[in-house]
Amino acid sequence: MLVTLDTPYVDTNAADLSLALDDVERPALHVLDLALPGGVGLRLRLLGASHQVVLRAPGRALTETVACLPGRPPALPDALHDENAGYRFTATVLRPEGSGLTDRVAALRADLTDDPYALVGVFPGDVDAVTALAVRPDPPAGGLAWRTWHAYPQTNELVLTETVVTLR
Score class of each variant (00 low, 15 high):
N156H: 06
L80I: 00
S50A: 15
P58D: 00
R109G: 06
R60G: 03
V105A: 00
P8Y: 13
P73T: 09
T148Y: 12
E162F: 11
Q154V: 11
G41R: 15
L160W: 05
D22H: 09
T166N: 13
G125P: 12
C68Q: 14
R95A: 13
Q52E: 08
R168C: 13
A145Q: 13
L5D: 07
L133Q: 10
T4A: 13
T113I: 05
P27F: 01
T148H: 14
R95S: 13
P58C: 04
N84S: 10
L19S: 02
L119T: 12
S50Q: 05
T4W: 09
E64C: 12
E83P: 02
L34T: 00
L47W: 09
A67Y: 04
P73Q: 14
G38I: 08
D103G: 00
P96Y: 00
G86M: 05
A67T: 01
P140E: 10
T12D: 08
V135Y: 12
L112G: 06
D128W: 04
P153W: 00
P153K: 02
D114I: 03
Q154M: 06
L36G: 05
R88G: 04
T65S: 14
T166K: 12
N84E: 14
R147A: 11
R147M: 12
A106F: 01
L2N: 14
A49S: 13
A61W: 01
L17Q: 11
L17Y: 15
T148F: 10
G39T: 12
D115K: 13
D126V: 07
L55P: 07
T163R: 11
L47R: 08
A91S: 14
H30T: 14
P8C: 03
V127D: 10
A79L: 11
L42M: 11
V122L: 08
R45I: 03
G71A: 08
V105E: 02
A110N: 00
P73I: 02
R88S: 08
L101N: 01
L36P: 07
G48L: 00
F89K: 06
L55T: 08
R56K: 08
L2D: 08
G71T: 12
G39C: 07
T155D: 04
H51L: 13
V53E: 04
P140I: 13
L133I: 12
G98C: 02
E157F: 03
L167H: 07
L76H: 04
T63L: 04
L32W: 12
R56E: 15
A85H: 09
P58H: 04
P116E: 06
R109A: 06
R60P: 05
T90R: 15
V127W: 00
M1A: 04
V40P: 06
V135E: 08
F123A: 07
